[in-house]
Design a protein around this nucleic acid. Structure first.
Length: 218
DNA sequence: AAATGGACCAACCGCCTGGAT
DNA sequence: AATCCAGGCGGTTGGTCCATT
């Protein structure tokens, strides 16, 4: 077992340490991580305790393989949010940010690369339209509505404070991102030309789900 | 049976943010 | 306004397992 310069334990957690941490969180609740090592009687740093709790000991954490639906959701959320793993994980019940990040790095990234290669091959014979959504930063004042048309109105309402080109780009980018009909309900096309399938309900359900707007911090 | 390499995942590290002082 | 500190996050590392040679 390795120790830090301050004499803190590092490396894999033992069952005894897990139990001590569980007891401590059970008694005092989450938070005040600086007090946890002392309260629990653990020779671990606050960050290590927090990480262990959030990624492993929290009740209802789902273990085992990711389902196809989960993969699909991660891919789409990653398209929306980028490497915001905590936000993505917040959308997938029972999965932690670390789980999602690891899964992305070890499985999904490869999967997408393989799919892209297939797509590139097929594109040599058939030409298809590629959407190129531009990454744009949304301000909190830009939108607060669930409906995408209302979203557009909200953008327009703020157009005095932004350049018209940026506004137009925002709307097109957003609409492209959310349009389930464009490809005949076959899914959406990523900027790299990769087509993605939809879960039941597609973007429609996804966009009408209130939580996504909370995630996006509108 | 031993060595090697790749895949996977738990854990660590460093940085950023926001609240308190 | 400046500083400090805890909490939180994403990138990276290192250990373990398993398949292959």
């Amino acid at each position: 077992m390795v120790s830090s310069p301050l004499g803190m334990r590092k490396g894999a957690w033992t069952k005894e340490e897990d139990n001590l941490l569980r007891k401590c969180i059970g008694k005092y609740g989450e938070g005040k991580w600086n007090l946890v090592p002392l309260r629990a009687g653990l020779n671990r740093c606050r960050k290590s305790c927090r990480m262990r709790w959030l990624n492993y000991l929290t009740p209802n954490i789902k273990r085992g393989d990711f389902t196809r639906d989960e993969d699909d959701l991660i891919i789409r959320l990653h398209k929306l949010l980028g490497n915001r793993w905590s936000l993505i994980a917040g959308r997938i019940p029972g999965r932690t940010a670390n789980d999602v990040k690891n899964h992305w790095n070890t499985h999904l990234q490869k999967k997408l690369v393989a799919q892209k290669e297939d797509t590139d091959k097929s594109q040599k014979t058939t030409k298809s339209t590629i959407l190129k959504p531009r990454p744009l930063a949304f301000s909190k004042t830009m939108a607060c509505s669930i409906e995408s048309s209302a979203f557009e109105q909200n953008i327009r309402r703020n157009e005095n404070s932004s350049s018209p080109k940026v506004i137009e780009g925002s709307i097109k980018w957003w609409n492209n991102l959310l349009d389930t009909k464009e490809n005949g309900d076959q899914g959406t096309t990523l900027s790299n030309g990769l087509s993605l399938g939809f879960l039941e309900g597609g973007w429609e359900d996804f966009c009408h789900d209130k939580n996504i707007w909370e995630i996006l911090e509108f």
